[in-house]
Every structure is written in structure tokens, then in C-alpha cells.
Simulated scan of single mutants.
Amino acid sequence: MTGSRVLVVVPTYDEVDNLEPVLDRLHAAVPDAHALVVDDGSPDGTGELAEELAAQDERVHVLRRTEKAGLGPAYVAGFRWGRARDYDVLVEMDADGSHDPEQLPALLAALDGADLALGSRYVPGGRVEDWPRRRLLLSRLGNVYTRRALRLPLADATGGFRAVRGDLVDRLPFDEVASQGYCFQVDWAWRAWRAGARVVEVPITFSERASGRSKMTSSIVVEALARVTGWGLQDRLADRLPGRVPPPVPGRVRDGGRSSEVR
């Protein structure tokens, strides 16, 4: 989206070793993009480092929160901050180096014909590097279950590298999005698709974090499984209500300008 004001929202918790290199790569890849670091009270000094970087670069901004409230609330706070300041495009990107900032231009370009561009590991051209087989299997199975339970025609609904038009953010009821872990990504992608948004998947390479420990826990996985199951059951029960408009039929979803059948 040429000429758009782009804000990359970067949630952090104990990412002091990764933050500066990631922001340097971001600004090398997309020099005009601004970054908002949303720090949830990191005890390792990430928030202080973010403020130092912001003092040196007008493209870096900081939103500091007092407690670790989860990924979902951090992104919602970042979206609200960005829209209040008239950013046209909002981007989700991890602070740990697992998302390549060099691939952001492809996501932004995809918005020329879409409302939401998802960085996808599981469409042709996408891949995962340096993950143990068990975690890769869990991710793939989770996405298959999500696709079938929610009738959501996306190969990678759980991915967290995505770009969205600001007007779509304004239309979605983020106050109702209660998910805290990566299930947040499923939650609002599903809401966007059901609202009729144009959603595309763009192939990306996902890598293991550069340093530090993963924030993935068993409780996050359990939350995702429970919520997706509940949403799927409610959606099917709602199909039986009089006057119910059926959901869109899973069909063709573009990936990086190509079309592929997603079942």
C-alpha cells in the first residue's frame, strides 16, 4: 500500500537481547515504518531499552504496561494506540526474531488486494526452520483442527506475522476478543473472515527465536483447544436458528498472488 502510514506492533516480555536487532532489521527492510513496542512490565529491562531506542529514533514508540497480561491484550492496546494516531496499516510481529522483517514488504504489497494479509508457514513457499519435529507437528495439527472446527479456509490461522488495514480493525469488535495466547490470532482472523474481509495468505519463513526462552506453555495450548472447540460448536448450533445466514463456503484463498484450494 504505497503512501500508507505503517505501524508495526511488537509485544515484548523479557526480550532485551532481541529487541534492538529486530528493530534494526525492520527499518532496513521498510525504512518508513514506525514501530510500537508494547512491553508488559519486563523485569529484564526490555522496557527501558525500548525507551532508549525511542529517544534515538522518532520511528520507535513505546507503550509500557505494568503487568504481563498476555499477547491478545497487548495487540489490542497497540491497535488502539495506532488507530488513535491515524496509522493506515497495522502489523503484528514478534520481537524474538522468529519473523523475518525482510518479508514485511510482501505482506504490505498483498494489502493492495486484501484487508488482511497473513504470513503463512503452511502454504506453498512457506516453511519452518529450526523447530523440533514435535512442535512442528503440534502446530500443523492445531491448524488442521482449527480449519475444520471453524470452517475457516486458512492454512495457517495461528501465525502471528500479519498486516491489516486500519479500517478493518475499526470494524471488528476487539472488545469481545478475550483470548490471551496465540489463540488470539485465530479469534480475530475468524471474525475478520466471517465479517466478509478479504483475507490472503502470503508464504513466509518462520525461524526459532534468536535467543531467550519461548513463551509457549501448555496452558496456552489448552486455551486454544478449548476456545476453538467452543466456537465451532456454537457456530454449528447457530446454523439451526431460523433466519441464520450460513457462513461463507470454504473455497479458494490466495497465497502470495496465487490461488490454492484449502480444505
Rank of each mutant, 00 (worst) to 15 (best):
L23A: 00
R209N: 12
V91D: 00
S218T: 06
D32R: 11
A95P: 02
H34A: 11
D17I: 03
L63M: 14
D96K: 14
L152F: 09
A210T: 03
A197Y: 03
G70R: 07
L118W: 02
R64K: 14
L241K: 12
A106H: 05
E261N: 09
R171C: 05
A55M: 05
E52I: 07
E176L: 13
L63N: 14
S139D: 15
G257S: 04
E92K: 06
D239E: 14
A224I: 03
A29Q: 09
Y145W: 15
L108T: 04
E92M: 06
L108V: 03
G166V: 09
D175E: 14
G181W: 06
L225Q: 02
V199A: 06
W188E: 00
A114R: 06
V253W: 00
L53F: 08
V89W: 06
E15Q: 13
D86Q: 10
R80T: 15
R5G: 04
R5H: 14
V16A: 12
E15Y: 02
S120V: 02
P101A: 04
L152S: 08
E67L: 09
S259E: 14
Y87P: 02
G97E: 05
G256I: 07
A114C: 07
L26Q: 00
A178T: 07
V91C: 05
D239P: 06
R252W: 10
G160R: 04
E102R: 04
S42R: 15
R213N: 12
G230T: 10
R191A: 04
R25I: 06
M1E: 12
E51L: 11
R59F: 00
A95H: 10
D167T: 08
V8N: 07
E201A: 08
E15V: 06
G3W: 11
L150G: 01
H34E: 03
P153N: 06
D44G: 05
V6F: 10
T229S: 06
V164A: 14
M93T: 02
R5Y: 13
S218M: 07
V128A: 09
Y122D: 07
V253C: 12
A106Q: 15
L233V: 09
E261Y: 13
G251Q: 09
G97R: 01
A95W: 05
V38W: 03
R213Y: 09
E15C: 04
G257T: 01
K215Y: 15
R133N: 07
V262F: 11
L118Y: 03
